[in-house]
Write a protein that binds this DNA or RNA. Sequence first.
DNA 1: CCTTTTATGGTCAAGGCGACTATAAAAGGG
DNA 2: CCCTTTTATAGTCGCCTTGACCATAAAAGG
Lengths: 239, 239
Amino acid sequence: MDVYDKYAYEPFAVTVDLAVFTVRGGALHVLLVERGEEPYAGRWALPGGFVRPDESAETAARRELGEETGLTDVSGPHLEQLRTYSEPDRDPRMRVVSVAFAALLPDAPEAHGGGDAARARWTPYAAAGPLAFDHDRILADARERVGAKLEYTCLATAFCPPEFTLGELQQVYETVWGTALDRPNFRRKVLATPGFVEAVPGAARLTGGRGKPAALYRAGTATALHPPLLRPTPEGRPA
Amino acid sequence: MDVYDKYAYEPFAVTVDLAVFTVRGGALHVLLVERGEEPYAGRWALPGGFVRPDESAETAARRELGEETGLTDVSGPHLEQLRTYSEPDRDPRMRVVSVAFAALLPDAPEAHGGGDAARARWTPYAAAGPLAFDHDRILADARERVGAKLEYTCLATAFCPPEFTLGELQQVYETVWGTALDRPNFRRKVLATPGFVEAVPGAARLTGGRGKPAALYRAGTATALHPPLLRPTPEGRPA
DNA sequence: CCTTTTATGGTCAAGGCGACTATAAAAGGG
DNA sequence: CCCTTTTATAGTCGCCTTGACCATAAAAGG
């Protein structure tokens, strides 16, 4: 990292791209924006934008998250850096290096308040067609990362509202992983992990649905999951 | 990521920084270079350099790895992107965004063949004093990532020569994690994981040391470790 | 009132893993 | 040449986790 090297260096544009996920109605959704200009005019793309001179990539990502979702409290949602995409030809116009982030939101915010957010739409992950640039790749990487992190972190609560039932939490796992889980076993595992969730003391209950009302829980203070909650292996996944 | 936005964007310099690790004599070592110029003249730093106009960050990292280690076959070593560091003030001279990588090498190459490699020295991780720029942080992040990946991947073999004993493999774990492991249990776990290691058929053996000669193994084809090989928890590490 | 639906509680056996003991095969020192 | 030391390898035992179940409780709907 020697700026005084004799090598000439070329200036790059640096952007952030966001894969913003939520779980809605049993399906994983991602926030997309429609491009208005070339290249890829009319195609959908991940929200994002330039990193400004006084910003870190993290700051820029959180700013973009607020602009695209219309959220007021932008400090709440889980946001984490994924990796950086820097293929020389990933943008046909110029050299653009993009730092990708994944964000996890609870359902509800139907997005597009004003400004940039007006362009944004929640799209089922499965229906997120061919995206602009290398965003298909970024989105796939982001989804894989989120699925993997559910195994060994308490990240699943980031998809849930402040108070939630264990059934809702299980829905998050089943939706992201695309597999069904045994309810009693899931419950046993979650409750046996100290700090994962904590019961809402008011013995509160919920919901408009059928069946016995469920107890409410809040996210606990733990972040890691030891031992991990491994997704069921369809066959053998050792390789 | 809209280049036609009205926002002015500032050009950034983009570099790669490498945390190159090896296990030597029961201690984790990292490859450092001494800076000759301001700022941080005389301080040690992670090797790295500018990403060239026709390179991706991955390509630049592998090129730098070759230049700094003097290795000929630069396609062999494990190299993986860590994350990107982009704090606006991380370089006092100008706006530099750095994509950090971790590289894992087997012991032996005493580095510095010619060119840039002459500047490079293997340093025990524990003795890697205050480094230039934010490289202390990068190095700490890299070490943590490597330690974590040993748990759920077969990455440990990247520290070993082409043929190795289970004792050497265990040494890798103990060195990176800083904990002792029970030998029979470690052996049982490694051999029970299909594709982790495969026995060298020639019933070969080794070594100049005392004791019963050990069987030789090669790295297998598996990359993931299911179930994981968790490092012993000193107390409770659920948080 | 009975069925359906969801939440919750419990059992049981197989497998993984930590702790530990035992044996085998080399080197080194008297 | 024997005995100790050292390292590799084999095996045992019991606890805990986990997957596959079964059973009960509490609501809604007909």
